[in-house]
Design a binder for these strands. Sequence first.
DNA 1: ATTGAAAGAGTCTCAGT
DNA 2: ACTGAGACTCTTTCAAT
Lengths: 159, 159
Amino acid sequence: MANTPPDLNLDKLDLNIIQQLMHDASLSYAEIGKKLFVSAGTIHVRIKKLQEAGVISGMKYQVDLKKLGYDVIAFIGIYLEKSSLYDTVAKDLKKIPEIVRMNYTTGNYSIFVEVVCKDINQLRYILHDELQKIKGIERTETILSLEESLHRTVTVTPA
Amino acid sequence: MANTPPDLNLDKLDLNIIQQLMHDASLSYAEIGKKLFVSAGTIHVRIKKLQEAGVISGMKYQVDLKKLGYDVIAFIGIYLEKSSLYDTVAKDLKKIPEIVRMNYTTGNYSIFVEVVCKDINQLRYILHDELQKIKGIERTETILSLEESLHRTVTVTPA
DNA sequence: ATTGAAAGAGTCTCAGT
DNA sequence: ACTGAGACTCTTTCAAT
């Protein structure tokens, strides 16, 4: 359960590169280098090192899911009959493709998930048909997002 | 308040391209084209069209925040004194850089936010010092993530 | 709308410092 | 560990279909 070894000896340059790439992965090495006053080759070496260390992994396009008809974002808090059922329930939840995120949590809920789906009917289907079938869930509480007013990534630049 | 015009006339090819790129933006046009049995030029034209329509926007690197020392993910449900205070409270919340996501919600809470920070001390600081200062917040409820067991994106491939 | 080829830009490797 | 230049690959444009 111990955490990943924390000290990767990342210097200011590494953190600055990460900060750039986590916001825009399309920047060229030359562009990043220019901003940070080093050559494109150096940026290349650093990025390779960061990838090998697993600090940065793949790049993904941002997709506007609303434009694809996915209008509903909901958060669902799940109460378990026994908290020892976490593993088995988690396994079943993962099979539902609309569940995009799942956290084991403290507080009221044992499991907290995020669902993205097309409309309220589909959400009802997930809540009433799919979740009800899973053994070990006592009850659920749904928080429906009416508007997502912020979605960004944390700033990692050194102080 | 009306939604974005839904019909962009996306065909199967468009959806397949989106599906590929939202998982791995580093694929070359030639690679995607090979998988989908069209030329690289066609992929290029389609991606350009999708970008202009805003269906896909920038690409971002995935960053392992744990390896950078960000060990804490928490969800905070916020109760407002009056729900009309949403705009002004939202504006103040956005100033806190550790708040990475914010939704206006139904259910128990009026506002639901996600926080990413380095340790529990920093979380306490955000809860006790930063949030307390914001006018209009009645109280908050914190859900701490002990483990993130799933984080993926919804599947958009046509049925 | 799709294709294939040519021009331009970016990545990757490596010898030198 | 950083640099700069050459080899290679990818993106971008465009004339033809």
